[in-house]
Structures are given as structure tokens and as C-alpha cells.
Amino acid sequence: MTTSNDLLVVTSSPHVHSPDSVPNAMRDVLIALVPALLAGLYFFRLPALAVIAACVASAYAAEIICLRVMKKPQTGEASAIITGLLLAFCIPPHLPVWMAVLGSVFSIVIAKHLFGGLGQNIFNPALIGRAFLLASFPVAMTSWSRPLDGVTTATPLSIMKEATGQALPSLSELFLGNVSGSIAETSALAILLGGAYLLYRGHIDWRIPGSFLGTVFILMSIAGWVKGAGFWYPFFHLFAGGLLLGAFFMATDWVTTPVTKLGRIIFGVGCGSLVVLIRLKGGYPEGVAYSILLMNLVTPLIDRYTRARVFGRVKSHA
């Protein structure tokens, strides 16, 4: 059978015409990222703007160059902008700009294009960029500063982990984002707004953030009860660090997460359990990035074992 383009394409019904396309979806994701972007700019000012601009520009440039060099059609460049933006969102606002550029280029070239480009990558490129930066420049990547005045200080999670005696921020400060942390992970409110928009537009499935956050909440409630920490403890873990940013914008990446409904729930529960494990027992104060990357790794396996039975087939007794 020929599939030449100049022949009339005849297909069987139903003929669905949908406005959903990759550029449209990308535009919606960008809109959803705006609240977090504004919150990040408000709290961390010019240094954050420099890091964000550098990440987005270098990710876009790297994407264009990769597509040229590999002689691929120029499609989906918007996804590179999203990758750059997400990477900027999860790194410290005072990171030297050249490091941000390096991380961004690493995300696009190594994590995305060397694995086959848009739709082929195994790992979330933005998180690979973050993991690369954290392993390469551990000091710069863990130097945090207070919002607005930029005084060096620890993040809420590291205050809790290292028990330095500093006062923990209140829940309302955590919710609004007036705490130290990566550029756009601090404001729970802004991220929830963006996440709600994506859910409303149907671009992400509630199952992943739902099971992810639910797992963290339940396990942290148990941990808080064991420690006798009280009612605020699970909420603190829900709003602190990059959990919400990861759950809504990174664990829901279309490319690197399962496609089946049950698979998505397994994925979310896995991410949530790993986050709790790393935060309570691991060496790092925060583990959202690694938890998502580890679950990215088993995504093909999850998809394989949760594949729906083909209609009319009898379940095999293999």
C-alpha cells in the first residue's frame, strides 16, 4: 500500500476534528506556568530573571541547533522553551548564569536529542538538567537565599532535616511562597493555580498528581503521628520544597510517564513513596527530582504490565 502524500487519504469513520495539537498544548502549559513565573520573579527579583532568561534562551538555541545538525523537521520548539523554563524553576535564584546555561544545554542536547528528540526521551530533560547541575556544582546548587532581601539562608526542608535550631516558616508563608528555595517552587498557591488550569484544560491527568500528593500526605501523616509532630506536619511536607512543582509539571510530562490509567496511579504512588523515603531517611533534604527520574526509568515496565486487554481476547494463563 502506498502512503504517498499526493494521494487522497481515505480513512474509516469516526472522523474526529480536534483543536488539540502539540503547539496548542504547549501554549496551554506555558500559560499554566505564568503564575509560578510571576511568583518567582516577585520573590527573587533580578537574579531570578537573569537565570530564567538564560535558561529559556539557551534551551531554545540548543534545540534549534540540534534540529539543524540532525536534519530533523523544525517542530515542537516550544517544548524546548518549556524545558528551559522548568529547569530555571527548580534551580536556586542566585546560581551563576553560565551554570544555568550549561544545565539547560545539557537538558536539551544530552537528555532530549541524543535520546531521539521530542517524544523519545526516557527521562524528563529539565530534571536531568537539574540532576546534572546538582552533581556537578554541589555548592552553588545548595546555596539558598531568603526571598526579597536575598540574605543567605537554609530552605525549610533543610532546616527540618538538619535541625539547625532555626525557626521553621509558618504554613501560610510556605503556601504563599515567602521562603527560600528554587526560583518557582516556593509558592504553593501559584503552582496550584497553574496545575488547576492544566487539569481544567485536560492536558494532565489528575491521577498522577493526585496519587503522588496523596501518597506523600498519607505517609507523612503517619510519620508525623509517630513523631508526635502534630497536624501541621503533613501539610508542611506538602507545601515545602519542589513537591507541588514536580507533581503538577514534571511527573505529568506526557513523554516520560505511563499512558495507562492504572499505570499513572502506580507511577504517582511510586514517586510519592520515594519522596517520603528520601526526605525522611535519605542524605538529601529534598528528593522530588530523583523520585521522578527513578520512576521515569520504570515507566516502560509499568506500561507493559498495565496494558489494557484487547477487546475480545481471553486472558492468557501465561
Binding site: 551563576p96 544530552i110 552533581a135 556537578s136
Partner: peptide, 20 residues
């Protein structure tokens, strides 16, 4: 002094370099 990316002399750096 501040430039080197420590990752490259860690195991992942070996895999990335050899792969490329």
C-alpha cells in the same frame, strides 16, 4: 577553579563521554 563540572569525573561522566 570554579568551572569544572564534578559530574564528569564521577561514573556518569564516563558513560556520557564514552557514549558521545
Amino acid at each position: 577553579e570554579s568551572a569544572p563540572a564534578i559530574l564528569m569525573i564521577l561514573p556518569p561522566g564516563g558513560f556520557i563521554t564514552l557514549g558521545c
